[in-house]
Design a protein around this nucleic acid. Structure first.
Lengths: 166, 166
DNA sequence: AGTGAAAGCGAGGCCGG
DNA sequence: CCGGCCTCGCTTTCACT
């Protein structure tokens, strides 16, 4: 975090390649970015240490593994002092079913994304949260009927360019 | 897709391990799940071919790479015939900035998640979508101020167990 | 910084239980 | 279906540029 060495085009290229396929062998990666294996490996290590790469994960087809539902929950807090946000954020972390939690601008405070076995499980979860008195005034749930798109990579090339999508 | 061979505990374990670290070497993975390398590798290949593993990706710290914002958009369609949904879903795919798109139950039709450079870009994008007449009646935007939680793995162990989170 | 060689180790195939 | 062996190729280091 102290010194941010700038990234050149090769670094960006490496990140993009690994984002698409984290199991690329170092020799293949090196060839893809036009380097020989040694400096390529050194760059990858450097990018990892500098925190540009946070983890390497396998994407699973969860639907084939176990029945589950996704639910988005809009949460409004009772009070809006700094400590109320801190408390909610720290308490909500306990829940394994919680995939995402975002503080948003607009009609409510937090947008949450849960993944649970079924609606009953989700309902239990929300009751549990309310009981624990983490400062929730009200919430509204949107159950996902069908996920049309859920992309993992994309972005990098798009965000680095100046063209607007057509 | 034709024959779904059942997964035993070792398979689940393998998936969980690779979900946490897709760069595990096969020998380390084998040891972690209590197998010798050969059958372990065979299982991984089988799981890949059967579609339980969809991809291996590197998670990037996007915030360090480029400034960007995340926006959730609630979309309501004008009409709700089957063809209206089909049209919207196919048209919306074109947009690189779109990370997620879910059909939801409740007050509106689709919940979208965008990632763009800034608010101006997002606004252009939405104008573009409205102009292209994909059947959007109205939309409402929630700009993410702070992402508190964004987990990639979790789930597997949680979803496979019967205990409720505490 | 990148290259190239060398050593060590893992991937992936094949047989035997 | 698992374990052990074997070979090939990759990873990783190091001296050099």
């Amino acid at each position: 975090m102290l010194g941010l060495p700038k990234l050149d085009r090769i670094d960006i290229n490496i990140l993009g390649q690994l984002q698409q396929n984290s199991r690329l062998s170092n020799v293949d990666l090196a060839q893809a970015v036009g380097l020989s294996p040694s400096p390529c490996l050194a760059r990858v290590k450097r990018l990892e240490k500098a925190g540009y790469i946070t983890s390497y994960t396998a994407r699973l087809n969860l639907g084939k593994l176990v029945d589950h539902i996704t639910v988005f929950t809009e949460v409004t807090l009772k009070d809006h002092r700094r400590e109320d946000f801190v408390k909610f954020e720290s308490e909500i972390r306990r829940y394994d079913a919680l995939k995402e939690c975002h503080l948003v601008s607009g009609g409510y405070d937090y947008l949450l994304k849960f993944v649970t076995r079924n609606v009953a499980r989700y309902h239990e979860l929300m009751e549990h949260i309310l009981e624990r008195n983490v400062g929730v005034e009200k919430y509204f749930s949107y159950i996902v009927i069908k996920t049309v798109i859920d992309r993992d990579n994309v972005l990098l090339k798009y965000l680095m360019t100046d063209e607007q999508a057509g």
